[in-house]
Amino acid sequence: MQAAAWGGMAEGHSVLAILPIFHGFGLGVCVNAAFMAGGKSILVPMFSAEIVAKLLRTKRPNLLVGVPTLYEALARAPSLSKADLSCLRATFSGADTLPRPVKERFEKLVAERGSRVKLLEGYGLTEAVTAIMAMPLTEYREGSIGIPFPDMLAKICRVGTEEALAPGEEGEICVSGPAVMLGYLDDPEATRATLRVHADGRTWLHTGDLGKMDADGFFYFTVRLKRMIKSSGFNVYPAQIEAVLYQHPLIAEACVVGVPDLAQMERVHAFVVLKDLAQANPDTETQLIEHCRARLIKWSCPREIEFRAELPKTRVGKIDYKVLVQEHTAQHDNQGYAG
């Protein structure tokens, strides 16, 4: 009900269910929320930009919820360049960091096609079943994932502790409320590590996500703790580097990971898909690295860029960075640490 109210859904409205409904995000937001509001859920048989573009034209949904890669693909879909998109009342991106260039390209498309909708961010995780916070339709703060839904609580704690931090300080996002899971099936140790009773007597879910909260209570996601790259003692955030890569006109998709390095512990390795695959060559690699060096500190710049025809995706449609790390590791297994 909260997701429906947040998205302004009412009787007669429809949501395009792009996300798989075996996933909490897809089931909770794209199906249950629509039905609770008396609306309609339009099921997408298979994820592809072509199918989604066709359904946008023919079924004219009012609410669109997806991952950043979907919005990037839609912004580049030729079939939408002349479509009437005035039906869209709200669009939300979740499950991964939304690069600013992707947001801008999608908003430019819908503005040209008759809608004033803004692409806003939300936040949720499997352990809390569905979306638990989002940017209000009437607000926008650069990079913010919004504020918690009315019956959910959130705070920032010092990593590894239950100590709440002041606004502006970076720590682990913790949430509490009815959406939080009861625990992991047959894994009491993991449950104890993730669900902790704090001094206020509430059970808090330690998400494993780094973020901040501003003075007005708006939250900002930084990075999954497991994705943080440690390079020469510095914390390096993949999403920051990916956002810079997306600013380059040659880039269609990008994913940044940390790989072992004898001198730096980890170094930054970028996987990219170019809009024109024929430009995948050493000169382009140099150009992209120089693009990053002009905008990032030394430790955050990719040491190498690996061109791919496509990047692996999870079933939700996110770029699967874990598969890329596994593939890189397998490829370099016989070499040990790179120098």
Rank of each mutant, 00 (worst) to 15 (best):
G38P: 07
E169W: 08
E169C: 13
A270D: 03
G114C: 11
D200E: 11
V256G: 01
R315W: 05
F92C: 06
M135L: 04
A10R: 09
T203D: 01
F218L: 02
G94D: 06
G171E: 11
A278F: 03
A263S: 04
T222N: 00
L205E: 09
S144C: 04
I305V: 13
E266S: 13
E304F: 09
I156K: 09
T194M: 08
R196E: 08
Q326I: 00
A95M: 01
G258T: 07
F25H: 05
S93F: 00
P20N: 10
P249W: 01
A131E: 12
P282M: 01
V44W: 05
R141K: 14
E170G: 08
P178N: 10
I319V: 13
T203E: 07
A73L: 01
G8W: 01
R76G: 05
H248S: 10
P260D: 11
M181D: 03
T314R: 05
D283H: 08
R196C: 07
M46T: 09
A294E: 08
E170D: 11
T203F: 02
S48A: 09
M181E: 02
A154K: 08
V29Q: 07
G208I: 13
L16K: 02
A49K: 06
V236P: 14
N32A: 11
G143W: 02
K118G: 06
V29T: 15
E169V: 12
K212L: 14
P101H: 02
H198G: 10
Y184I: 04
E121Y: 00
T194I: 03
R105M: 11
A53W: 01
Y246V: 05
L182Q: 15
L153N: 11
I21M: 15
A239P: 02
S144N: 01
R295M: 00
